[in-house]
């Protein structure tokens, strides 16, 4: 029973990873590409790791450290990329709200 749950989670995770790749190809500019590439791939990797924990329960400690690593590094790198994009190319969206104006 728990094996089937693991396989379903791995399949869901790979679907999210494929969607993130499609998003990287289809999106128009840097910020939206980062949006597709970070959030979907974080969720996909975490789902794959949880699926592997369901399949191999003895490896849970190493895999949870891996999940913690992905949870820290992926949003962090996205934030740093967005910030440096802003610092290099300036204000990109059309809404008129510029929160980082003072930190330039």
């Amino acid at each position: 029973m728990i094996d089937i749950l693991g396989y379903i989670l791995i399949l869901l995770g790979s679907i999210f990873l494929i969607l993130s790749g499609v998003g990287l190809l289809r999106m128009p500019d840097t910020i939206t590409r980062m949006h597709a590439g970070t959030k979907a791939s974080t969720l996909g990797s975490l789902l794959v790791i949880i699926g592997v924990i369901c399949l191999e329960p003895t490896l849970w400690f190493k895999l949870s450290i891996l999940a913690l690593f992905i949870l820290i590094t992926n949003p962090l790198s996205s934030s740093i990329l967005a910030r440096s994009t802003y610092l290099k190319h300036g204000f990109l969206n059309q809404s008129g709200i510029d929160d980082l104006k003072d930190n330039r």
Binding site: I72, T73, L76, S79
Partner: peptide, 9 residues
């Protein structure tokens, strides 16, 4: 943000 996260990493 980077400094705090690197302390954890």
């Amino acid at each position: 943000l980077l400094k705090i996260a690197v302390d954890t990493l």
